[in-house]
Simulated scan of single mutants.
Amino acid sequence: MEHGIIVGERATRFGEGAVETESETKPRPPLSGEPLALELVNTTFVHGGLRGSLVDALATPTELDLWLEEHAEAFPRGPVRRASGPATASHLAGFRRLREALRELSRACVAQEPYGERAVAAVNRAARLAASWPEIGDGTADAPADRTADGPVVRWAEPDPRLVLLGAVAVSGVELLTGPRRRDVRACAAPGCVLYFVRTHRRREWCTPACGNRVRVARHNRQRRP
């Protein structure tokens, strides 16, 4: 078990080498630290610069479990701890549908366009999976994963923990794209890059320093040409 995610017999390394092998050969998303909604959007990215190839970091259920593991600290603790057994194709399809909707809404946000009805409906539908409420526990039968020390027991309406996590990503999108931070959502200005980020300072134009360096080098080379 790492970061509290339990995945049955494969808990220690998500497949005892399956993901480990994939992660050695398949690039991981280059940007981290964004709101969960953008972290999901950014699981599709270009690797290799302007002439690089598009990579999908959520191509298999195993890769979904890896992504959930990497972001475990950002999710509600209870569902993370209760996620037993590997993710299914249905789980993967749900996260990919949400990713598509969040990418479209992020694009519209940056372009200052109205949000599309289909994308909004998809995000809102997923957000309902995160519905929860606090209860007073009996002090004996409540799983530690569902409560904090001396705090209430948290119950979720959705029994599938991974769907609760899907809902948490959708809630992140609702909060980001309807709150004050929506004004700072940006698409990376580097040619060929498809990543989104929340601008942390006024002059930030790139998702990562690598994209900024690539643009500056290209600009410098153009200026040196006779």
Rank of each mutant, 00 (worst) to 15 (best):
H3Y: 10
V19S: 00
H47W: 15
K26D: 02
R28A: 12
L66Y: 05
P35K: 14
V19Y: 00
R13E: 05
P30D: 06
R10K: 06
E34N: 03
G17C: 01
I5N: 01
L38Q: 13
L64H: 03
P30A: 05
I5D: 03
V55I: 13
L64T: 04
R10E: 12
E24C: 09
T44D: 00
F45H: 05
E20Q: 12
G8I: 09
E34T: 06
V55D: 10
T62N: 04
S23V: 08
L66G: 10
T43R: 07
R13V: 03
E34C: 06
G4S: 04
E34P: 03
L66C: 00
V41E: 04
E20A: 12
F14Q: 09
V41P: 08
A57W: 02
E39P: 03
L58E: 11
A18C: 02
R28V: 09
L36T: 03
G17E: 03
V41A: 08
R10Y: 12
I5T: 02
E20I: 07
F14S: 08
S23K: 05
F14T: 08
N42I: 07
P61R: 00
E16M: 04
G52S: 15
G33C: 11
R28S: 13
E63C: 06
V41T: 10
L50A: 15
D65Y: 04
L31M: 11
E24F: 11
E20K: 05
V7R: 03
E63R: 15
R13Y: 02
E20H: 10
E39M: 06
T62G: 09
V19M: 01
R10W: 11
A59D: 10
P30I: 07
L36M: 09
S23W: 03
L50D: 15
H3Q: 11
T12P: 04
K26F: 02
T43P: 08
P30N: 05
K26R: 10
P29D: 00
S23M: 06
G8V: 08
G8A: 08
E39G: 04
A59T: 05
P27F: 12
P27A: 12
G49S: 15
G17F: 01
E16Q: 06
T25F: 09
A57P: 02
H3D: 14
E24Q: 13
G49R: 15
H47T: 05
E63A: 11
S53C: 10
A57Q: 02
A18W: 06
L66E: 09
A37I: 08
F45E: 01
V55C: 11
T60S: 04
D56S: 09
L64D: 05
S32M: 03
